[in-house]
Design a protein around this nucleic acid. Structure first.
Length: 593
RNA sequence: GGCCUGGUGGCUCAGCUGGUUAGAGCACCGCCCUGUCACGGCGGGGGUCGUGGGUUCGAAUCCCAUUCAGGUCGCCA
């Protein structure tokens, strides 16, 4: 039977009570984590978002009536307890923040009874996601998720205060927008007033924040909810939050500077981690060549080495044909893994095939300097020696090689490098390596659409010295774009924007837009820019990913209160769902089966 | 859309190459217990083995289909 809390006021959260309070009468409220009934003595661990506190019930203090109530307590009952803080007369519990004290109850009220939860409310849950997400409101009671969401809140609050102190204004932009079908798929929202017309939910506030610059709000930020109708991953949700910002009268350096200081502040205040400034920087080309990735994890080495020149004339047909078709041959050195059993090497070959490789060549150098290799027999001793020297191979090392078109070689070895580091435990979660990636290509060629598409977005400024290439060789143009990466994860990205209409027109031309189609989509932006636009640049973080790394979680769902599952549905609320025919009629929408 | 992994009491799992009545730990329920904190003791309840079909004398186990969840490739300006 639920009782009222009338006349009671919570004085402390559970772990706010300490041995400073011994002798005081306090009122605590929370959930029953655990009850231990010893007959005429009952212990209850009370839980709230701060942690646990032990309550003792005995008939002397809480009287017969209160004791009878305490006997009925079960997991997850919500109770209020008035009692005196005492030093524990039993053993101290070292594992508990409040392990030296307990509350001897005078009064107990059962504010709410509870069904037995379908899974244990505890840290480091072993319960499968399916069940946790169906009962997300219970899952969110678990201490690890509570810690994550509190950390997330801290990041949001600190970000606001830091950016405000740097002269940024927090301005909201619409979430019912015009669809601009470039890039990810839009979530569409039908319009009742304009049947057959649709809004799109924003993939980012990109155009609006550029307009704000045009309007003179020279430093803007927003914690913006964004939507992309694409398939999910461990680090990707269909709706997510960006820390979005844009600055006027700045260049790349200014944006990077303020963001390095923002990140340093967050890591210092939230994690007590000092990161050294400025962050390391690397061009996109260097990142690809050395790490096979545009978001390299630089917590460990195992860098890629190009051996194309050394095998140009070799007899190994796999290498030879890759080179003949314009590809490359590159390798990595997995230190000390020469003794890897054949089965594990085969598993690596399968792994490589899984990311698109046709195969994987290996060369193990055993302790005595003998080779065990899938291709050594096709090579001369001289060629082998040169390869080993290039990869700095020593006895005991395992060298892995991929040969294919260049982009695939990067992908395969980049993935393999990470996999090997994972297997060898080289990735320490409490080590934070920030890295700026710069000098991105402005365009990448889309095989599917048979044209160049913007690697970042169509408003990204080309590097001045590459401007002449826009018309002659778009693939070579580099962008004034920058990504900020942390431990192999892209946590944010941005660019200097085009504010000159002649460059913007050339950009659209290179992308294959006609003037008409460009105006159809982005006319209001182009028009706005005719009325006086400042040079501007910006950056946006994936807040969820950033918090995921700070919380040392492997899955973005663990830092989002109510996430979606792989097929973008919500297991708890069952969204998306069919709607009433009446709603469809109003929207003039019919469903084709 | 492709590939990989998994689905067995509320939770986590075992159940080998098909063979009595499908097990364990935790949780749950009842009784006992004054210093527990993974409390302890005694007793108890709870399963259409994801779903559908097939093979077989016999299926949790083998086959096919399907569904749900996770990971990943494609996709994510």
């Amino acid at each position: 039977m639920a009782e009222s809390m009338k006349g009671l006021k919570r004085t402390h959260r559970c772990t706010e009570v300490s041995n400073q309070n011994i002798g005081e009468v306090v009122t605590v409220m929370g959930w029953v984590q655990k009850r231990r009934n010893l007959g005429s003595l009952i212990f209850v661990d009370l839980r709230d978002r701060s942690g646990l506190l032990q309550i003792v019930f005995d008939t002397d203090s809480v009287k017969e009536e209160g004791f009878a109530k305490a006997e009925t307590l079960r997991s997850e009952f919500v109770i209020a307890v008035v009692g005196r803080v005492e030093a524990r007369s039993g053993a101290i519990n070292q594992a508990m923040i409040t392990g030296e004290i307990e509350i001897r109850a005078f009064e107990i009220r059962i504010l709410s009874e509870a069904l037995t939860p379908p899974f244990p409310i505890e840290e480091h849950s072993q319960t499968k996601d399916e069940v946790r997400l169906k009962y997300r409101y219970l899952d969110l009671r678990r201490p690890d998720l509570q810690r994550n969401l509190m950390l997330r809140s801290q990041v949001a609050v600190l970000t606001r205060s830091f950016l405000a102190s740097e002269g940024f204004l927090e301005i909201e932009t619409p979430t019912l927008c015009k669809s601009t079908p470039e890039g990810a798929r839009d979530y569409l929202v039908p319009s009742r007033i304009h049947p057959g017309n649709f809004y799109a939910l924003p993939q980012s506030p990109q155009i609006f924040k550029q307009l704000l610059m045009c309007s003179g709000y020279d430093r803007y930020f927003q914690l913006a909810r964004c939507y992309r109708d694409e398939d999910l991953r461990a680090d990707r949700q269909p709706e997510f939050t960006q820390i979005d910002m844009e600055l006027s009268f700045v260049d790349m350096e200014d944006v990077m500077d303020v963001n390095e200081r923002l990140l340093a502040t967050l890591f210092r205040e939230v994690l007590q981690v000092e990161v050294s400034l400025p962050f390391q920087r690397m061009s996109w080309q260097e990142a690809m060549d050395r790490f096979g990735s545009d978001k390299p994890d630089i917590r460990f080495g195992m860098e890629l080495k190009n051996i194309s020149d050394l095998v140009a004339n070799c007899e190994f047909s796999v290498f030879k044909s890759a080179l003949e078709q314009g590809g490359t041959v590159r390798g990595i050195n997995v230190n000390g893994q020469a003794a890897m059993p054949r089965k594990k090497i085969d598993a690596l070959v399968d792994f490589a095939k899984g990311v698109g490789a046709k195969g994987l060549a290996y060369l193990a150098i055993d302790k005595d300097g003998n080779y065990k290799s899938s291709f050594a027999k096709f090579m001369t001793e001289e060629e082998l020696e040169k390869i080993i020297t290039r990869l700095e191979g020593k006895p005991g090392d395992l060298l892995l090689f991929a040969a294919d078109k260049n982009s695939l070689v990067y992908t395969v070895l980049g993935a393999l490098r990470l996999e090997m580091a994972k297997q060898q435990g080289l990735l320490k979660k409490d080590e934070y390596k920030f890295l700026w990636i710069t000098d991105f290509p402005l365009f990448e060629f889309s095989e599917e659409e048979n044209r160049y598409v913007a690697m970042h977005h169509p408003f990204t400024m080309p590097m001045e010295e590459d401007l002449p290439l826009l018309e002659t060789d778009p693939g070579k143009v580099r962008a004034k774009a920058y990504d900020i990466t942390l431990n192999g994860v892209e946590i944010g990205g941005g660019s200097v924007r085009i504010y000159q209409s002649d460059i913007q027109e050339k950009m659209f031309e290179a992308l294959g837009f006609t003037k008409e189609s460009a105006y159809e989509r982005f006319g209001f932006l182009l028009q706005a820019f005719q009325y006086g636009v400042p040079p501007h640049a910006g950056l946006a973080y994936g807040l969820d990913r950033l918090v995921m790394l700070m919380a040392q979680e492997e899955n973005i769902r663990d830092v989002i209160a109510f996430p979606k599952v792989k097929d973008a549905s919500c297991l708890m609320s069952k969204a998306p769902d069919i709607v009433d025919q009446k709603q469809l009629d109003e929207l003039k929408i019919s469903i084709i089966e």
